[in-house]
Structures are given as C-alpha cells and as structure tokens.
Amino acid sequence: MPSWVPLVLLLVPVGICLALPFKRDLLDKVWLVLAAEAVFGIGVGTYLALFSVPPERDMGEVVRIFAAHVPQVQNALLAVVLNFGCSLWFLIRKSWVADSLAESSAEVGLYLGAVGTALGAIWAKPTWGVYWTWDPRLTSAAVMLIYYAGYLALRRFTDNPDTRATWSAALGTFGIVIPVTVYKSVVWMKSMHQVQSSPETVYPQLVTAFRFSAIGFLCLMIVFIYQRYRIAQEQLKREVAPPEALGAPQGAA
C-alpha cells in the first residue's frame, strides 16, 4: 500500500474541524463517524505495525512501538496547544464554550501525555537500557504532566465558576511555555531522544502504519474532547442554574 493512502482519512476530521465554527452542533451527530474512524485508524495502524512491518536494522522489533508512542505524544501536545488557544479565547472574549473546551483539552492532553510518556519509558528500556533518564525531553514531558495535573487540581479546588474560568485561563496562557519547551527540548539542549521525526527520517516501511495510527488517534482525541466537553457544560449548567427547590421554571437553563 502506498504511504499516501491513509492521508485520505485525514479529510474527515479536518473537514469537520473547519466546519465546526459555522455549525456548532455538528459534532452532536457526526461524532460517531469520528469514533468509527478512530477505531478503524488505530486498528489498521496497530495491525500493520505489529504484523506487516519487518523488523528494523538497529531497533529490531521494538520499532513497532513508534506507531503508538509518537501519535499519542503528538496529540497530547496538540491538545495542550488547544488548551492555550481556548484560554486565550476566554481571556479576550469571556466565552463559556472556551472555558469548557480548555478544561476538556487539558484533561485529554494529560491522559494522552501520560500514556505516551509511559510508552516512551517502555521503549527506552530495550534501546537505552533504562526506563527513565533525566534527559531534557523526558524531564520536560514529566514537568508538563505535573503542570496540567496542577491545572486540573486548581479547577477542582475553586468553586466559583467565574473565578475558576479566569484563573485557569490565566494558567493555560502562562503554561504555553511548557509544551514549547517539550517540543524544542531536543533541539535546544543536547538530548538522548532523537529530534522530531519527519517522513524522510522515519523507518520507511513504518510510515503507512504510523499515519493510520496517527489519524486514528487524532479522531479519538476529538471524540474524547467532545465527550468531556459535554460533561463540562453539564456541570456548568448545574452550577449556574438555581436549584429546583427555588422554583426554577422547567428547562430554564
């Protein structure tokens, strides 16, 4: 299979994301399509990576981890950047959509980042001989996880929705320093971790599998953020609406 085939799949999530600003409730219907594409992409990517790709010259079998490790870390960074965008959006125009979206993207980013970092540790054992080393890339990734865990903790510890939104938006805006450090750490500082991969430097047989998996994880991230967003909106409604004992009219919120 030529390696451009999976890129066709990219049309669906990109198209949906571009259409989203014009039709806000689009995802209510099509999220199942994205979920199906996520299952398909991750399934095909995993199958190809595990069973069809030959072992690489230096890495041997463990090169197969690439198709799971890189997409998750990439999407975690993407989610964190989305968190920054939404935080900025909230600070400029006080939008509750932005607040909920920032919360969801931080949580999904934390989840994907945690799993991605754990996979990196698993991969490090056979190639570097240790699970963890205090190398700039790994350290900055761990720092990012701690920061966004703190971000979510702050949201938990603040009861007033207004205050919570402003503070966490400020945190999210300030926090952009960290993903930039993670992304650039391999270039700025001497790191054991290799620099960002590009299609030219990746093991060529793996590119197709990687692209399937990456697009699958992209769809998965959108679905997860969307579902988490609905939870956040529901919670916001419950906090803002008066309790029913006060005689709130039905369906007022």
């Binding site: 991750i42 995993t46 595990l50 010259r57 230096d58 890495m59 041997g60 079998e61 463990v62 197969r64 981890i65 799971a68 490790h69 998750q72 989840y111 945690a114 799993v115 754990a118 996979l119 698993i122 991969w123 054992k125 056979p126 190639t127 570097w128 001989g129 998965l220």
Partner: peptide, 26 residues
C-alpha cells in the same frame, strides 16, 4: 532485549506491553 551489540534483538514483550497499555488507556 539486550543492549550493547548495536542493535536490539527481540523485545516483543516491550511491544506487547506498549500496545496493551495503549488499549487499556483508551
């Protein structure tokens, strides 16, 4: 999974662990 010979031999258990962790996470 041994290191030092310049190339990694075997290591399927790491690959399995990685994918199991991924799907468990999802």
């Amino acid at each position: 999974g041994q290191v030092g010979s310049g190339r990694v031999i075997g290591g399927w258990e790491f690959v399995t662990a990685a994918y199991v962790l991924t799907f468990l996470g999802i």
